[in-house]
Design a binder for these strands. Structure first.
Lengths: 152, 152
DNA sequence: TCTTGTTAGTTACAAAATCAACTGTTAGCA
DNA sequence: TGCTAACAGTTGATTTTGTAACTAACAAGA
């Protein structure tokens, strides 16, 4: 019988995190995909504008850590669907201010309700203590490779 | 001043998990990509065979939760690079037994060392208690949408 | 044995992500 | 002013993924 290796893939954090992320994204994805035909990048842009209000594509990129080409395409899609408008900045004409339309805000609010309910369901599996530890740990891990975090 | 929305994207678990997963995968990805030209699916297949020994593509799929087309392509790539061999099963000639070659085992062992060291580094940010809570929570979340878990 | 249904794995095509090069604009400075 | 470098955002080419349809093999019952 061939010696079984003792490395446990299920304990390897990058792998485990990916499994958890994918599994927990599924149910939410089904909704924004089927209900609005959106992509992941699209709901993210929608949420950034819904939560923080007017901002440029660049700032969305800094906050969300998505590449600017992804954002550019997501913005184009959302504009096409009349969920947002762009306005070239007077001060710096390279950048455009993005802002949700009424329809965009409505979509955002609906999806936000779904997200909140879903998050509650996910979190309900854990004690308040566990939730705190989990969220704090995930935030730390999300800093991996950035200034201030390890591995850079 | 427009009312700032109170939904906190940084607390939304699917989003937070994704951020943590991506950030923490980066450093490891750099290594298997630059050193072996591998894709995520490829190191996963390599690891499954390295850890558990001979198995079929199908079983890798069940364990890793990757779609069979991804696995099929990863296996083809790994075979091309002479990291594994396939052998059609005598009992059921639809399936093929996959097994690492010597070169495959060497690559696996090297990457395993990297993975273990990296995981240690990541985990070092947390107390033993926090680590237990984190890993347990991630395993639960990874079950989301499966039989036995919520949302199905 | 024939039919029907299921399974393992592959392939073809469409959708999406990545990467590099591009446009137009601003900023710094000689 | 005129030159160069940097920056915001877009576009096009390539790579990777996802979806569906496919082949080949098995299984089970009429």
């Amino acid at each position: 019988m061939p010696k079984k290796d003792d490395f446990d893939l299920q304990e390897f954090l990058p792998y485990l995190l990916n499994q958890a992320a994918e599994a927990s994204s599924m149910a939410f994805q089904k909704i924004y995909k089927s209900r609005y035909g959106m992509l992941r990048t699209e709901w993210r842009v929608l949420f950034h504008l819904g939560i923080y209000g007017r901002m440029t594509a660049n700032e969305i990129g800094r906050r969300s850590n998505m590449h600017k080409t992804k954002i550019s395409r997501a913005v184009a899609k959302l504009e096409e669907r009349r969920f947002l408008t762009r306005e070239r900045s007077a001060g710096d004409r390279r950048q455009e201010m993005l802002e949700l339309t009424q329809a965009g805000r409505t979509a955002y609010r609906e999806l936000r309700e779904v997200a909140m309910a879903y998050d509650d369901e996910l979190a309900a599996q854990f004690s308040p203590q566990e939730q705190r530890v989990l969220r704090a740990a995930l935030k730390k891990l999300a800093q991996t490779g950035r200034a201030g975090g390890p591995y850079l």
